[in-house]
Design a protein around this nucleic acid. Structure first.
Lengths: 165, 165
DNA sequence: CTTTTCTTTCAGAAATAATTGAAAATACAG
DNA sequence: CTGTATTTTCAATTATTTCTGAAAGAAAAG
C-alpha cells in the first residue's frame, strides 16, 4: 500500500473509533494526524490536510488540549502556534482513562450516592436499593482499577496480568 | 428522597452515561428500567413508563437483546412478550466489554494489520510505521486484558488487583 | 378463512450535533 | 497609537441521529 492511502485509512479509522466512543469525529482525526506527524503542525496545515474550516479546526484542537492529548508548541520568532500529540500509546490510554473517569464515572457515582437514602421498603424499593448499591460498589471498584491504571508506569498492568493469569 | 423521584433520577443518569458511551439514550433508559424492575416488563409498560413510541421501544429493546443485555420472557398462555435484564453487575460489565471489543477493537485491528505493509522509507513513513505498530501492539494487549476480563468469574480481576497493588 | 393481538418496519418529522465563515477579539511589531 | 497576523467566537447552515405513528407483517385463536 502507498503511504498517502495508508495515512488516509489510518485517519479515517481513528475518526471512526472516536465516534463510537462519543468523541467527535474531527477531533479524533486531528489527533490521528498529529500522532503520525513528524513535527508539530499549525492550524493551517491541519485545515489543509483534513479539508476543514478554521473554526472547526480551532475548536477541536482546543478540545484535544483540554483532554491533555495535545500540546501547543511555540517557536522562537514565529507568531503562529503549532500543535503536537504525545507519542506514547500507553500514556495516551492512561490519559483517556483519567479524563473519562472524571467526566463519566464520577457524575454517576454522585447520583448513586444521592439515591442511597431512598424512602420506603416495598418490594420495588428493595430491588431498587439492591441494584443501585451493587452498581455503586461496582463503580467504586472500577474507579480503583482506573486509578491504578492511570497512575501506573508504562504497561505495568499488562505485564502483571501476563504473569498471573 | 421519595422512590419515584429516585427511580427517575436513576433512569436519567443511566441514559446520560449511555450517551457518553455512544449508546443511544433511550436504549440505556430502557435498560435502567429493566435493571430495577422486580419482574419482566412488556413493550406497553416500557412505552408507558418512559413516554416513548412503540417503534422506538421496539427498536431499542431489539438492540438490547442484540447486545446480550436483555432477554425475552415468554409466559404460558400469554401472547405478549416480556423483557428482563440480567441483574449481575459484573456480568453486565463483562458482556459490554465483550461486545465493544467485537464492535470497536476488532475493526481497528483489522485496519492496522492492513497498514503493516506500507511502502516507502522516508522520515514520514518511518514515523507512520512506528506509530501504527505501537498502536497495534497496544490493541493486542488490550484485547488480551479484555478477554481475560470477559472470561473471568465475578470480580476476580478486582480481587487479584487488590492483592498485588 | 377471518379476526384479533401483537411485533416489526420505515418514511417523514423532530431533535441534536457538527461545521462553516465571517466578524470580533487578542497580541505583537513598528 | 496603528497596522498586521493570528486566534477565538458564534449565528446560521448543514448533517446526522433519533423518534414517531401509521401501515404492513406474523402468529395464534376462533
Amino acid at each position: 500500500m502507498k503511504y498517502p492511502e495508508a495515512k488516509s485509512k489510518f485517519i479515517q479509522a481513528w475518526g471512526g473509533l472516536g465516534s463510537s466512543w462519543g468523541v467527535n469525529r474531527t477531533m479524533a482525526q486531528i489527533h490521528a494526524l498529529l500522532l503520525i506527524a513528524t513535527e508539530a503542525l499549525s492550524t493551517e496545515e491541519i485545515m489543509e490536510e483534513l479539508k476543514i474550516s478554521r473554526g472547526n479546526a480551532n475548536m477541536n484542537i482546543r478540545a484535544l488540549i483540554d483532554w491533555g492529548l495535545v500540546e501547543k508548541e511555540l517557536r522562537q520568532g514565529e507568531r503562529k502556534e503549532f500543535f503536537i500529540a504525545g507519542k506514547d500509546v500507553w500514556a495516551l490510554a492512561k490519559q483517556i482513562a483519567k479524563e473519562r473517569k472524571k467526566r463519566e464515572l464520577e457524575p454517576i457515582q454522585k447520583v448513586l450516592d444521592q439515591l442511597k437514602d431512598v424512602e420506603g421498603d416495598g418490594k420495588e424499593q428493595e430491588e431498587f436499593k439492591k441494584m443501585t448499591d451493587e452498581i455503586s460498589e461496582f463503580a467504586d471498584q472500577a474507579e480503583t482499577i482506573l486509578d491504578l491504571f492511570s497512575n501506573s508506569k508504562s504497561n505495568w498492568l499488562y505485564k502483571v496480568i501476563g504473569k498471573i493469569r
